[in-house]
């Protein structure tokens, strides 16, 4: 009997990460995510590569194969956060996001008295949790993210996907707290409307 010192879980993880098909799919999705956050192909490739290496090195400490994807993505998110913190890439955000412009996009949804335009009033979303299991839904979600002005999408993703506090986003982007809130409001409102129009409400007929 020659028992290897490493636990079985670690071997499984290493095996999963060295299975070419599985690794290729994971790599593709990680790269898509990193490119969205960093908007820089070379930086994104490096971050993904480093995350996969870190995953292989850390495999011994990782127990359980089921959440492998989640775990590797958490490593990738940390790498992206580091890159964004270190880099000066956010200085461009402030200039791109004009406050007037952002208010304009919101104003279009409301009547002069500040209440909803009838066409824009939110409708009910049926079983949003079920949509998360649908691959098509994620294609719509990505298209909706893409549809936002790039800087608006980036602020939203830093907040909701990378877990930055609003204060840090404002400071990093050199914008006021108020402007930050305006941008996030704009992003959420835009995504909400886009998802509703392209998924949740048109979805009535989609099931058949």
């Amino acid at each position: 009997m020659s028992a290897a010192p490493s636990p079985a879980a670690a071997t499984d993880t290493t095996a999963a990460l060295s299975d070419p098909a599985q690794l290729a799919a994971l790599h593709r999705d990680m790269l898509r995510f990193a490119r969205l956050q960093l908007r820089d192909q070379a930086l994104a490739e490096d971050a993904v590569q480093e995350a996969i290496e870190a995953a292989l090195v850390g495999a011994a400490a990782y127990a359980g194969k089921a959440a492998l994807r989640t775990w590797v993505f958490s490593i990738l998110r940390n790498k992206i956060v580091d890159l964004l913190r270190r880099g000066s890439r956010l200085t461009t955000l402030g200039c791109v996001v004009g406050e007037d412009d952002e208010e304009g996009a919101i104003d279009a949804l409301f009547r002069a008295n500040g209440h909803w335009q009838p066409d824009c009033r939110p409708r009910g979303w049926e079983a949003p949790e079920e949509s998360l299991e649908n691959k098509q839904f994620w294609a719509v979600f990505e298209a909706c993210l893409d549809h936002l002005p790039q800087s608006v999408a980036r602020v939203f993703m830093m907040r909701e996907m990378l877990g930055f506090e609003t204060a840090e986003i404002c400071a990093k982007a050199g914008i006021t707290a108020n402007n930050c809130h305006v941008i996030l409001h704009r992003a959420r409102t835009g995504l909400r409307q886009c998802l509703e129009r392209n998924w949740f409400v048109t979805g009535e007929c989609r099931a058949c």
Binding site: A21, Q22, A25, L26, D29, M30, F33, R69, T70, V72, F73, S74, R77, P122, R123, G124, W125, P128, E129, L132, E133, K135, W138, F141, E142, F156, M157, E160, M161, L162, R188, L191, R192, L195, E196
Partner: peptide, 28 residues
């Protein structure tokens, strides 16, 4: 009211996306 509920849903959707949950590992 719907807007408010959907903000919570949107937060869950974004968190799931960030976890790599945007492509079900069908074949995997």
């Amino acid at each position: 009211t719907r807007y408010n509920e959907q903000m919570a849903a949107l937060r869950r959707i974004a968190a799931r996306f960030a976890d790599g949950g945007f492509a079900r590992p069908d074949g995997e």
